[in-house]
């Protein structure tokens, strides 16, 4: 029972990270219809710039590696990183994707792979982030908010709810609510949905399509940055920027978006949690050998049964 609850909580925390990343994929896909392979590199950028800022700023404020800074520092760093990555997302869209607006989608995809390769190998250089893993300074105390035990005596197992996990859950939850509001309750969101529904018609209706697309990238990139920030809070040993594991993280998040129904904002969130649960419970109850397999097998299974994903609307065939 303890193990079950523990796995459940881990899955919830990881699920919210997947969901945050998946949102970026699903928004870009919804509008431009291509897999933004460089999205995972924005997560990396978010993670590594969080580290750089924390590593440079904290000692100057008088916090050494052993003292935990007050909460507001994290609360300041997060929006800064989001702004920065949002800007980078804008630049990438402007320079690499906009010139390809009328090109076949496969080209945009290759460009995205190119951008991803570029960011990875640039990040790996010594004067950027370097090629070795680093330790993210703790911005949050390692408190246990609650812990409860199952069993008695020797077999007692604790289930711990840590502050970090709670913060991840709360922060990503807040961001998702903000996004939900933005997409479904504001003019800009309406414009985004219109562009995603039909770009040409949207343009005819006077919607500045290019600006809306830029905004989508900014939004997606800043969510990815937030995910990167939360990621290094949870896992302080940060993998180097060109590690394949980042690409795999991105792929899993994309799988989440597909499972939820690509282009569907709520679906991406649902998908993020679904794959986190499958991955964690599969690894715990079946075998950790096949952790990545569960995710992709689930994907293939769901696509065969419901090709448009869990919450996706049926494809409209236009003749």
């Amino acid at each position: 029972m303890a193990d079950f609850t523990q796995t459940l909580m881990t899955a919830a925390a990881i699920g919210s990270l997947y969901a945050l990343i998946a949102l970026g994929y699903t928004m870009v896909y919804g509008i431009l219809k291509f897999i933004n392979f460089a999205h995972s590199d924005i997560v990396v950028l978010g993670a590594w710039s969080s580290y750089t800022v924390a590593d440079q700023v904290l000692p100057r404020l008088g916090y050494d590696s052993r003292t935990i800074p007050p909460l507001w520092i994290g609360a300041v760093i997060l929006p800064l990183i989001m702004l920065f990555c949002g800007f980078v997302g804008y630049v990438i869209e402007r320079l690499a994707y906009r010139p390809l607006r009328r090109a076949p989608r496969l080209n945009v995809l290759i460009t995205a792979i190119g951008v991803s390769l570029f960011l990875q190998n640039l990040g790996q250089l010594d004067f950027m982030f370097g090629a070795s893993p680093e330790k993210m300074p703790a911005l949050l105390p390692s408190w246990e908010l609650a812990s409860f035990s199952f069993g008695t005596g020797e077999a007692t197992r604790k289930v711990v709810i840590s502050l970090v996990d709670t913060m991840i859950f709360a922060t990503s939850g807040t961001l998702m609510l903000v996004l939900e509001y933005l997409v479904f309750r504001t003019k800009l969101g309406t414009a985004m949905r219109a562009v995603s529904y039909n770009t040409d018609t949207a343009a005819l209706m006077g919607i500045p399509v290019d600006r809306v697309i830029s905004f989508t990238f900014v939004l997606g990139s800043s969510l990815a940055a937030a995910a990167g920030f939360l990621y290094v809070m949870k896992y302080p040993g940060i993998n180097q920027p060109a590690h394949t594991v980042w690409v795999l993280l991105g792929l899993k998040a994309f799988v989440a978006a597909v499972i939820g129904g690509i282009g569907n904002v709520r679906g991406a969130v649902l998908g993020g949690f679904v794959i986190a649960f499958v991955e964690q419970f599969g690894a715990f109850y079946i075998s950790s050998n096949y952790r990545d397999v569960y995710v992709f097998a689930l994907l293939i299974g769901i696509l065969l049964v419901k090709p448009t994903g869990l919450l996706g609307s049926p494809l409209r065939e236009k003749v």
Binding site: T111, S116, F118
Partner: peptide
Amino acid sequence: ALLLIVMM
């Protein structure tokens, strides 16, 4: 990577 992007 840059060549690839420019080429595309």
